[in-house]
Design a protein around this nucleic acid. Structure first.
Length: 478
RNA sequence: GGCGCGUUCGUCUAGUGGUUUAGGACGCUGGCCUCUCACGCCGGUAACACGGGUUCGAACCCCGUACGCGCUACCA
């Protein structure tokens, strides 16, 4: 494929939706797969939705995900500026061409009139669209009124005929022109609408493939008509299936976490998020599911993107993430884990202890935010409560003799290292005749209050002599 | 209401007319490992929306129905 140029064109709303992440990802993979370029363009044409710091947040989330752009606000490029709000002169120039060619016209309708005709159309069960009230007023009159009245510029849709959209994912989709609205191109504040800015920018930035969400499919014929009004070459289109909530509605903030930063905060690794999201609507030609970026780049094609929407299944994300946590190098894992320990105020002050704790819980982690809960037993000052199972182990006669023997042995030492603990348990076994599960489970129950958790020697070495002694005594009393 | 898109296990999906007793993964579940849990390994569970065609033969092609979703803004 020659000269692939794609773009990710978000509007800065304050956070990056995972659906946007997937759109960005597919654009990125497609570009890299074809040795093309990916451009980041900020679609900030809605002044009423301006959010402070939104662009920084967006850039930050993209970087965290490992998505790199070839052109954009940060890296520049020969097709800038990459903020639509800085391209107003371009839109002005282009809209004038359209007006002069009678392909667009000013419309002076008030919001009230627009509301009224829509209401009438709705009541009459008619398709809802602008009635073309100002379609054919004379240029002279237009010019005169433009000086004193508020207006928008609308596209003059050629009434008869049909417009065909060739979509790489969905094939040919046909729309009847007479059902298409005379789309607003320039708003009364002078800013372009998405539809106009998008087409003009895609043209000037020489975008070869428009890869975006399915919600844009219905407006694509309008975009095509715009390209034709300018006599510009059409890009290829690919409309991605939507990401959905569990109830199959469009994935939304109301029903849980949708922002990339939410997952970051939860302790999801970017590699896991990206891997998971890549598989939502795309599948390789074999059964491989775990992918590095390079693997995705190599395998990704638009032809293998699905048509149906996909539910965002948290369980599978957690599964991916658990796998990625376990695949980290020990060093990397410890480094990342320590940050979480510190954030949760669980830093023991000892590197050795921190590392032991972290290493002990690694296998049970799905996210780094699980650390807090999994690590709790290492910080207890007393056993607040015993699980039912733990209680029944503790009450056994054999267990009581194990505990008593332990106290005797523990008192022979001033400190309790791993080695010493093993020696103690050997002697306890010898003196009581209790071994295997019957020996170890009561000890676990006594010092953790539950019958599950990391290997006992690790727990022992972190807790230290005094706590062990105290917990065992506490268990004898039960 | 109109227009458009979609519909294979609970979920993500493989599947493009015979190789399919519909494959993989998550989840759930049984077992092994093991002081326990987790990890890991082995096994089980569960689906072609419905109705008509076309064909020797259909999850795959056609038509209709149902259901879901999206769009229908001077938001993107």
């Amino acid at each position: 494929m020659q000269n692939v140029r794609v773009r990710f064109a978000p509007s800065p709303t304050g956070y990056v939706h995972v659906g946007s992440l997937r759109t960005a990802l597919y654009n990125f993979l497609f570009a890299r797969h074809h040795k093309g370029k990916i451009i980041l363009r900020i679609e900030d044409t809605d002044q009423s939705r301006y959010v402070e710091g939104a662009v920084d947040n967006l850039l930050d989330s993209m970087k965290w995900c490992g998505l790199e752009f070839d052109e954009g606000p940060q890296q520049g490029g020969e097709f800038g500026p990459y903020y639509q709000s800085q391209r107003l002169d371009i839109y002005n120039k282009e809209i004038n061409k359209l007006i002069e060619a009678d392909k667009a016209y000013p419309c002076f309708c008030s919001q009230e009139r627009l509301d009224k005709i829509r209401e009438e159309q709705a009541n009459a069960n008619l398709p809802i669209k602008y009635d073309g009230h100002f379609r054919n007023i004379s240029p002279d009159e237009s010019l005169k009124r433009m000086k004193s009245e508020a207006y928008v510029i609308r596209l003059k849709i050629p009434a008869p005929g049909e417009t065909k959209v060739h979509d790489i994912i969905r094939g040919e989709v046909v729309f009847q022109n007479n059902l298409l609205d005379d789309q607003v191109l320039i708003k009364s504040d002078g800013f372009p609408t998405y539809h106009f800015a998008n087409v003009v920018d895609d043209h000037y930035m020489q975008i070869s493939h428009v890869i975006r969400g399915e919600e844009w499919l219905p407006s694509t014929p309008k975009h095509i008509l715009l390209y034709e009004a300018f006599s510009w070459k059409l890009p290829e289109f690919a409309h991605l299936p939507l990401l959905l909530n569990a109830d199959r509605s469009k994935l939304s903030k109301r029903q849980g976490d949708v922002a990339v930063e939410d997952y970051r905060r939860k302790g999801i690794l970017p590699e896991a998020l990206v891997n998971f999201v890549a598989l939502l609507g795309w599948h390789p030609d074999d059964d491989q599911e775990v992918f590095s970026y390079n693997g995705l780049i190599e395998k990704f094609t638009l032809e293998r993107v699905n048509k149906a929407g996909a539910i965002f299944d948290m369980d599978k994300l957690y599964w991916f993430n658990g796998g990625y946590i376990r695949n980290l190098s020990q060093e990397d894992y410890l480094k990342k884990g320590l940050k979480w320990l510190v954030n949760e105020s669980l830093d023991t002050g000892s590197d050795e202890k921190n590392n032991n704790i972290l290493a002990a819980v690694r296998n049970s982690l799905n996210t780094f935010s699980d650390i807090k809960e999994k690590v709790q037993l290492f910080y207890a000052d007393k056993i607040e409560e015993y699980s039912e199972e733990a209680s029944s182990w503790i009450r056994l006669d054999d267990s009581k003799s194990v505990f008593k023997a332990m106290i005797i042995e523990i008192d022979k030492y001033s400190e309790l290292s791993l080695e010493e603990f093993k020696a103690i348990m050997k002697d306890v076994q010898k003196n009581t005749g209790v071994k295997g599960k019957e020996l170890w489970m009561p000890v676990r129950a006594a010092i953790t209050g539950t019958t599950e958790g990391p290997e006992l020697p690790t727990v022992i070495s972190v807790l230290g002599k005094e706590k062990i002694r105290q917990f065992v005594l506490q268990a004898i009393e039960r």
